[in-house]
């Protein structure tokens, strides 16, 4: 009887002579590449989470700085929108575990959409918080690049089959 191994991806039992897991198709010869893939996915997720946290922090900061000058409805709306965006980014961060590229693209499109609406309703918003906006763009572009690299690694592993 041949010795058995455990698949690193799905923990299914596989024969020691098998290169591919019979359960999930994982290529054991690419186990080394998985470390690189994990790193890229972690990078993409980190950037997305950072953007989400900044939305939440900026909501709190705006409330502290301008809270007293705003009417209650506007204050609540500001808080709900920013916390809503934070929750959406946490959702994208979770999704990025399996689909880093798609989640990063959606986060970027969401950022552009929100900024465009903000600027359309108040053109002075273009320069307001410019450094944070530049950071957001850098973070999200980095997330897209990391997501693309992660996808390339996954595709390379599939092509090897």
């Amino acid at each position: 009887m041949s010795a058995t191994l455990t698949c690193r991806e799905c923990q299914a039992e596989m024969a020691s002579t098998d290169r591919y897991c019979p359960s999930c198709g994982h290529d054991t010869e690419l186990d080394g590449d998985l470390a690189a893939l994990d790193l890229k996915v972690r990078q993409a997720r980190g950037w997305i989470l950072a953007v989400g946290i900044i939305y939440a922090v900026s909501a709190v900061l705006m409330l502290v700085i301008m809270g007293r000058d705003l009417p209650p409805d506007a204050r609540n709306l500001l808080l709900v929108i920013n916390l809503g965006l934070c929750v959406i980014h946490i959702g994208l961060w979770l999704w990025a575990k399996t689909q880093a590229f798609a989640a990063a693209v959606v986060a970027f499109v969401l950022f552009i959409t929100v900024q465009a609406v903000d600027i359309a309703s108040d053109p002075t918003a273009l320069t307001r918080g410019i450094f944070i906006k530049v950071f957001f763009i850098i973070a999200l572009v980095s997330a897209i690049r990391a997501g693309l690299e992660a996808r390339a690694l996954v595709r390379a592993s599939r092509a090897a089959r």
Partner: peptide
């Protein structure tokens, strides 16, 4: 040869 319940071939990795 593949196991009856296999989803992927252990030798060539095809689904």
């Amino acid at each position: 040869a593949i196991a009856t319940a296999a989803t992927f071939c252990g030798a060539c990795g095809k689904r």
